[in-house]
Design a protein around this nucleic acid. Structure first.
Length: 863
RNA sequence: GCGAGAGUGGUGGAAUUGGUAGACACGCAAGACUUAGAAUCUUGUGCCUUUGGUGUGGGGGUUCGAGUCCCCCCUCUCGCACCA
């Protein structure tokens, strides 16, 4: 018997796959395609277990689909631009490009050691000229189409990373990357008009296949569509527009509120005698960070401006307040307030003694501003609303909007919470925005023949300011149109732009004349299965959906949605051990066996499950695990321990279990080979077990044959239809348990054994490919499994001859019996009723009813 | 507050259509082999007062039968959150 030597086996097959380019995907319109893609990694330097899980899932899918006969595209590349490279430059004086490519090299080695079936011939990094050049071309096309513009706006500025951020990249008022609070600044910046596509983004969810409900709901939430009335109030002679989703309450407006950041604020407070006081309030509020202002507990504050605004519906003059809770970026930055029917307005009115006017009365007709202690927000009939009085408030909405439209002071409007995507970044290690500013011509795109605009080397990384500003050779260039000395844009693009179309470039990565080869992209797209972390629910997934739509409108492709099916895998988590006293996370290896006591202070440590990370000191190094157990075991465990969408708890003992399983598989196969029967049955397949032969089998080989068919059925269902690898693997373990105790004696037994091991090998291949190929070769197959086919089963052989019937009395199990499935309902009934153990329970009772469920149970109902 | 998801043995998890709850694995226990250990193998393992009772967060309901369907409640995780 040979030992399971994973080191030798894995090196051998990895070498074979690489040398023979086994997973190279070829464009062939005559073949049915399958595009399997995992979110490409940021080259941080080392793979972590989260990566291993992500790619183990994707690879299992890719391999299965190949075996099913699809032409599979399974590419890999690198999200090469980004801030960590620049930070490394500042801290360690290494150029971002060098740092990035070194990291790519080492991660690539790790990928190879894991044996993933990527098409390495399509590999690229977004920081390579041949990629970012084409992104600059796309930028210019979008710019020329009016989908990109530069404008002055209040934007999110991260003082720590010294760059602006898109709305999507601010979490709870903090930078998504470094976690420091952001501040709002007015700056002139580049925006991509994603808002033009808000409606398409909402509409096309129905083109998607399997997407997690929560991702869609998060996106819908983010886009934030609402219907309402855009109406012009009047301040002095000026229009004072607001947006409301409650036009039915328009006659109940008793004050107006405006955001402190609103451009009209200066003018409004100009003539006030308490001007300085008002100014102080505005400045104080703007300075407060977003978290305080946005929190629920945050006090609602405002100041009266001394000005009045006129309601165009009834001519009412209502006081105008500047209030801290009004958002400058939503709607028009000002709002109408109806204290009687909006809780926030109600609290504000009470605080500042503003009148309350009821315009919706509930059926009891008892609403009275004097006695109300909260706003009435339910349905009712309008009162005090001129010609609309008496109408149900919901029905009145449309009529009120129509009225405003007829009178010309307002219109029905759809409002979105989604803002345009701010893509400027004041950083070096990103794709340069290909624009030159000329004094006479204005902003001019760089000519395509001069692309790409490359990143200069004569820059300094000082840790303050944009390093590109320090490069004279980069900044000072002639105008592309008139040749006059001009200044080049020094902002680079948000790295999320790079990841918004990489899946399209994978379809034709070597295309030399355009960003995307339309024919090939139309063949491969869309991505049939996309796999990645939930953290990109809004960011990357929304941007990529938008980009796909915009590129369709530029006629590069003919599809609306990039990702047909999305799988968001859970995190890999493990226990973290935290000492509160010395504020330190311990690695499990530093602790004694019970892991609960701090070795330095003796206090009880805080133990909890956390996402694996460096900062919590609870990470497990994939390299060490691969060295100890082999890539197949590591991959198998990642798939076996939990279904993909759930968080996976790291447990090295679980790894041991998977390792034992593979060793057992290997032993069974090598025992068979050394039995001498291996050679005799070369080429023998499952379907070669003839029906005559199969009818004359003894019990144990008939069982094995049946279980083999059943395992194919189960694994097919789990791997292909449900993507629940854990249960498919479990059923293979059951088969192995049977094989383990199977004693082959006759020639027929050996034939069945051979076929069963063969099938097991093929089912195992997607989740443990090295050992799969090795055993396949050991069994004498000349064709490697990567060219093999997915096994099929015969339905007939998945059916047992006998089933364990449960006999119940009044729904309680009282007896069990193995019986032939061919028995009729009446026969079953008789057997159950005549059963000794059952009769005890029938004694003195009357049988009311008997239920027979084929192959399952007989339930006798008695009184 | 709104939205989504989850709650099953000592642990990870299974039960796809209402039909034996706990597959598979870990752990644990006993045993075999061994001078001993490691490895491997065998057997057992929800709980209890065991011819039986009880059990899928809690309470009710539908049904011959509920982890699964319906109603109410509790807890946890994630996302959004003054969105006018």
């Amino acid at each position: 018997m040979q030992e399971y030597n994973f080191t030798r086996i894995e090196a051998k097959w990895q070498d074979y796959w690489e040398t023979n380019h086994c997973f190279k995907a070829e464009y062939d319109p005559n073949k049915k395609k399958y595009y399997c893609l995992e979110m490409f990694p940021y080259p941080s330097g080392k793979l972590h277990m989260g990566h291993v899980r992500n790619y183990a899932i994707g690879d299992a899918i890719a391999i299965t689909k190949r075996m099913e006969g699809y032409n599979v595209l399974h590419p890999i590349g690198w999200d090469g631009f980004g801030l960590p490279a620049e930070n490394a430059a500042i801290q360690r004086n290494i150029h971002p490009a060098k740092w990035t490519f070194q990291n790519i090299d080492s991660m690539k080695q790790q990928f190879k050691k894991l044996g993933f079936s990527f098409d390495w011939d399509r590999e690229f990094a977004t920081c390579e000229e041949n990629y970012y050049k084409w992104q600059q071309v796309i930028f210019i096309k979008l710019y020329e189409k009016g989908l990109i513009e530069k404008r002055e706006a209040p934007v999110n500025w991260c003082p720590h990373d010294e760059t602006v951020l898109a709305n999507e990249q601010v979490e709870n008022g903090c930078c998504w990357r470094c976690g420091n609070p952001i501040i709002i600044k007015n700056m002139s910046q580049w925006f991509i008009k994603i808002t033009d596509y808000a409606e398409d983004l909402l509409k096309d969810y129905d083109q998607l296949g399997e997407w997690p409900e929560r991702v869609i709901s998060m996106q819908k939430n983010w886009i934030g569509k609402s219907y309402g009335l855009h109406v012009n109030f009047k301040w002095k002679d000026k229009d004072f527009p607001i947006f409301t989703t409650r036009p039915d309450t328009i006659y109940g407006v008793t004050f107006m509120a405006i955001a402190p950041e609103h451009p009209l604020v200066g003018e409004i407070i100009e003539s006030n005698k308490n001007k300085d006081e008002l100014k102080a309030f505005v400045e104080k509020t703007i300075k407060e960070d977003k978290i305080t202002r946005g929190s629920e507990e945050g006090e609602k504050e405002g100041v009266f401006t001394g000005e009045y605004v006129v309601n165009p519906f009834n001519g009412d003059q209502v006081p105008l307040y500047i209030a801290n809770f009004v958002l400058a970026e939503y709607g028009t930055g000002a709002l109408m307030a109806v204290p009687a029917h909006d809780q926030r307005d109600f609290l504000f009115a009470k605080k500042y003694h503003i009148p309350i006017k009821v315009v919706i009365q509930r059926p009891e007709k008892d609403l009275d501003p004097e006695t109300m202690d909260e706003a009435y927000v339910a349905e009712g009939n309008l009162v005090d609303s001129e010609s609309f009085t008496g109408l149900n408030n919901k029905k009145a909405m449309k009529k009120i909007i129509k009225h405003a439209e007829a009178k010309g002071f307002g219109e029905g409007k759809v409002n979105y919470r989604l803002k345009d995507w701010l893509i400027s970044r004041q950083r070096y290690w990103g794709n340069p925005i290909p624009i030159v500013y000329c004094e006479s011509c204005g902003p001019i795109p760089v000519a395509e023949k001069d692309l790409p605009v490359t990143l200069p080397l004569d820059v300094e990384f000082k840790g303050t300011g944009n390093p590109l500003e320090t490069s004279d050779s980069f900044k000072h260039v002639p105008c592309p149109r008139c040749n006059k000395p001009s200044i080049r844009e020094t902002d680079t693009m948000d790295t999320f732009v790079c990841s918004s179309w990489y899946f399209l470039r994978f379809c034709s990565p070597h295309e030399e004349n355009q960003p995307i080869n339309t024919e090939e992209a139309n063949y491969w797209m869309n991505v049939d299965q996309y796999i990645g972390g939930i953290e990109h629910a809004i960011l990357h997934l929304l941007y990529a959906r938008f980009f796909t739509k915009a590129l369709k409108d530029l006629q590069y492709i003919n599809i609306d949605e990039p990702f047909k099916n999305l799988l968001t895998q859970g995190m890999v988590v493990s226990n973290s051990y935290y000492s509160q006293k010395i504020k330190k996370y311990y690695s499990p290896n530093e602790l004694s066996d019970d892991k609960k006591i701090c070795p330095e202070t003796g206090e009880a440590l805080i133990v909890k499950l956390d996402k694996m990370s460096k900062s919590r000191n609870n990470g497990v190094d994939p390299d060490i695990m691969i060295g100890k157990y082999g890539a197949d075991t590591v991959r198998l465990f990642m798939l076996f321990a939990a279904p993909p969408e759930r968080d996976l708890e790291w447990n090295e003992q679980g790894m041991e279990g998977c390792y034992r399983f593979l060793k057992r598989v290997y032993r069974i196969a090598s025992d068979f080979v050394s039995s001498g029967y291996g050679d005799r049955y070369q080429g023998l397949g499952l379907n070669d077990i003839g029906s005559e032969e199969s009818n004359s089998l003894n019990n144990s080989s008939a069982n094995l044959l049946r279980q083999t068919h059943k395992t194919i059925k189960k694994v097919t269902e789990d791997f292909i239809h449900r993507l629940h690898f854990n249960t498919g693997i479990a059923s293979m373990m059951e088969l192995v348990n049977t094989l383990n105790s199977f004693k082959a004696e006759s020639d027929t037994d050996y034939r069945i054994l051979k076929v069963s091991i063969d099938i097991l090998t093929r089912l195992l291949y997607p989740v443990a490919p090295h050992i799969g190929e090795e055993i396949n070769r050991m069994l004498g197959h000349k064709t490697p499994l990567y060219k093999g086919s997915w096994p099929s089963f015969s339905e007939e052989w998945t059916q047992d001859e006998n089933a364990t019937y449960v006999f119940q009395v009044n729904g309680k199990v009282r007896a069990k019996e193995d019986l032939a499935v061919s028995l009729s309902e009446d026969e079953l009934k008789d057997i159950a009723l005549g059963h000794e153990r059952i009769q005890q329970w029938l004694d003195g009772k009357k049988v009311v009813k008997t239920i027979v469920v084929p192959k399952k149970l007989v339930n006798i109902v008695v009184k």
